[in-house]
Computed example of a mutant assay.
Amino acid sequence: MRRYKQLLYTTFGLVLIFSCKQQDATTADEGSVATTPVKVTTVKDSTLTETISLTAVSAYLQKSLIKANINGYIQKANATPGKSIYAGQVLFRIITKEAKAIGNVVNKLDPSFKFSGISNIKAAQSGMIVQVDRQKGDYVQDGDLLATVISKNSLVFLLDLPFEYNKIIQQNKKIQVLLPDGEKLNGVLSGSLPAVDSLAQTQRLIIKVANATNIPEGLVAKVVLVKTNHPNAQVLPKSAVLSNETEDEFWVMKLTNDSTAVKVGIKRGLENNGLIEIDSPKFKQNDKIITLGNYGLADTAKVKIQK
Rank of each mutant, 00 (worst) to 15 (best):
Y4L: 13
Q6Y: 12
K21Q: 12
A25R: 07
T26G: 00
T27D: 03
S32K: 11
V33A: 04
T35A: 13
V38D: 08
V40M: 10
K44H: 08
S46P: 00
T47C: 04
T51Q: 03
V57T: 15
Y60C: 05
Y60A: 04
Y60R: 09
L61V: 13
L61W: 02
L61Q: 13
I66W: 03
N71T: 12
A77R: 07
S84V: 12
Y86D: 05
L91Q: 03
L91G: 04
L91H: 07
R93F: 00
K97T: 15
E98P: 01
K100M: 12
K108C: 02
K114Y: 00
F115T: 00
F115D: 01
Q135S: 11
D142M: 14
L145D: 15
T148P: 06
K152E: 14
D160N: 15
L161V: 06
P162F: 05
I168G: 04
Q170G: 05
K174S: 13
L178Q: 09
G182F: 10
E183G: 05
L185N: 06
V188P: 02
V188L: 05
S192G: 12
L193G: 01
A210R: 06
N211Q: 14
N211D: 15
P216Q: 13
G218A: 08
V220I: 13
V226D: 06
H230W: 02
H230L: 00
P237L: 13
K238M: 12
S239V: 10
V241K: 10
L242N: 11
N244P: 02
W251T: 02
W251D: 08
T256Q: 11
D258R: 10
N273V: 07
N273L: 09
E277M: 04
N286F: 10
D287R: 02
D287H: 02
D287C: 06
K288M: 10
I289N: 09
T300H: 15
Q306A: 11
